[in-house]
């Protein structure tokens, strides 16, 4: 008999999620489209003033990208719950945290990577200074990963409820405020020619901590959702 190792479950879920995302690749384009629509509306609302747009561009791109990631969050566990796959994951002789880590990684890869491509382009269109581009990209990588980890924990809590789209955003706001502060802080620091490494270092530290804790929290939350 072949008993499944820790990594086999992780790999199975990661492969499955990437395959599912590939089958529905149209869905993956939605967040990017949303981010572009929102970011493109800002110049119309604020006027085509280069200086003003350049000053707010980093913040706009950051917030738009994070909001766009929310679109896919609500459905993260819901479809698995409805077709009984979630129960199979909970019942499998595997560490549920490892399976959740795979689920979160897949979500981040599928949702965030197109946004990480679109983010700098939107930044350029809004007139973000060239020296701020690398910092914007780094901030987007770190903050989107943090949002994926924190958000999936909350999505696990709301998976069993009827209405959760708005609730999820409400619950996420307090968790994401520090992330936005530090990510945008780094961008505005580089624009002013100040050292920008400190806020990004803080974000990386937070990411390292969340990387360890969020899958465990996610597994606990799912057990509550399934009343186990």
């Amino acid at each position: 008999m072949t008993s499944p190792g820790l990594f086999s479950g992780f790999r199975a879920i990661l492969q499955r999620d990437l395959l599912l995302a590939w089958r529905r690749r149209g869905d993956a384009a939605m967040p990017v489209l949303y981010a572009m629509i929102v970011a493109i509306l800002f110049p119309f609302a604020l006027g085509p003033n280069h200086q003003l747009l350049a000053r707010v561009s980093g913040g706009i791109v950051l917030v738009t990208v994070l909001l766009a990631m929310l679109l896919a969050l609500d459905n993260l566990f819901r479809s698995d719950l409805e077709d009984g796959v979630l129960a199979q994951m909970v019942l499998a002789p595997q560490s549920l945290s490892a399976l959740m880590a795979a689920r979160i990684l897949a979500y981040w890869l599928v949702t965030a990577s197109p946004l990480l491509v679109a983010g700098p382009i939107l930044g350029y269109m809004l007139g973000l200074p060239a020296q701020a581009q690398p910092v914007l990209f780094l901030s987007l990588v770190l903050s989107s990963a943090l949002l994926a980890l924190l958000g999936s924990m909350l999505a696990a809590l709301t998976a069993g409820t009827r209405r959760s789209g708005m609730l999820l955003s409400l619950m996420l706001l307090p968790l994401i405020v520090p992330v936005v502060i530090f990510a945008a802080g780094a961008i505005s620091a580089v624009e002013q020619g100040l050292p920008w490494i400190a806020p990004l270092a803080w974000l990386s530290a937070a990411l390292a901590l969340t990387l360890v804790l969020a899958p465990v929290a996610c597994a606990t939350a799912l057990r509550i959702t399934l009343d186990a």
């Binding site: 008999m1 072949t2 008993s3 499944p4 086999s8 479950g9 790999r11 199975a12 879920i13 492969q15 499955r16 395959l19 599912l20 089958r23 529905r24 077709d83 796959v85 199979q88 994951m89 499998a92 002789p93 595997q94 399976l99």
Partner: peptide, 18 residues
Amino acid sequence: KGDLSARENLRVAMGLYG
């Protein structure tokens, strides 16, 4: 999973349960 084939679904089950 409705979007996956029978074989792919079995692969997931094998990964989870051995």
